[in-house]
Design a protein around this nucleic acid. Structure first.
Lengths: 159, 159
DNA sequence: TTATAATTGTTGATCAGTCCACCAATTAAA
DNA sequence: TTTAATTGGTGGACTGATCAACAATTATAA
């Protein structure tokens, strides 16, 4: 009911501040901006990073398999993999089992560059750790996972 | 028979599942979809609902004031208010203090219709309450607020 | 006062992301 | 063999966000 800072010029946010959906959107936007600032020189967006992680940890997957894992459309993968290929981070190798599909792998340059990117991303995340108390990060991720995997065609999540 | 679908279960998400940013994005997407399903017949998007709430609780504000409160660009408000005007929910009244700006108010129809919309939104939010334990909702909102208002883009802060 | 700077709503352009329908080639199933 | 699915891919539509510019208006400084 009360906003965090009740200053002179009080705008009443009403129900908005108590809506998980609204708060999620605002927080996600802040993370997005921070990610962009931290990784713009690397040419990596959050979406591209997601693809990179899946390819790095699961070499040989097809584009549709990655799309399903990330909850994206197959068609969206084309431009993403094209970009990553032009950056010499990912390469498409013709699948031997299925001549329709490609098997995706990190290039040699991609292998080493991925270490840089992941370190940068983790550093970007750490920018927010000061705002969290003991155990809050794990709890937050747990509850977000619950909210995500409850409904919808949740992606295949392990662990 | 087992090539693609079984791969799904063994996909390693690596660092992804432990990233707050990634989890936020996924959860927010689920909320967005649920919101759309719950409110598509009302013609209200999350963004439009945000504007509606601010106008309802703070009648007479200018478009830029609302944009700043919601963290949006001023130019984005034009199309939003145009839509809400065509729906006969919001009206622009010329400001008496400043002839450059408008003062925004809910129309008569908007006043009653807003009750319907807010009830629907709250019902949509309640779809997720079953996943939360005692006090977790307040905790989650508190954490998300902290993450959001840490950075410069904080809403509702005038000087 | 006058000259200058700032603000308001608005337009337009760009850009990323999502979504959907569709296609040729290939594979799976009937 | 005929038919149905699936793959990567293309194109279009549709949001959203972002930014630069503009005319009208207001605020500030000289």
């Amino acid at each position: 009911m009360s906003s965090t800072t009740q200053d002179n010029e009080t705008i009443d946010f009403g129900i908005l501040n108590e809506l998980i959906g609204y708060r999620l959107r605002r927080a996600q936007l802040v993370f997005f901006n921070n990610f962009a600032v931290a990784c713009n020189d690397l040419g990596i967006s959050p979406g591209l990073f997601g693809v990179l992680v899946i390819v790095a940890r699961n070499p040989g997957l097809t584009q549709t398999a990655i799309a399903q894992a990330l909850g994206n459309d197959r068609s969206a993968m084309v431009a993403a993999v094209d970009k990553l290929e032009k950056m010499d981070l990912v390469e498409r190798r013709p699948s031997q089992k299925d001549r329709r599909s490609y098997a995706l792998y990190l290039t040699e340059h991609g292998e080493s560059y991925y270490q840089v990117i992941e370190a940068r991303v983790q550093q970007h995340e750490a920018d927010f750790y000061g705002l969290l108390k003991e155990g809050e990060k794990e709890w937050l991720i747990d509850i977000l996972s619950r909210l995500t995997e409850s409904r919808s065609d949740a992606p295949a999540c392990e662990e």
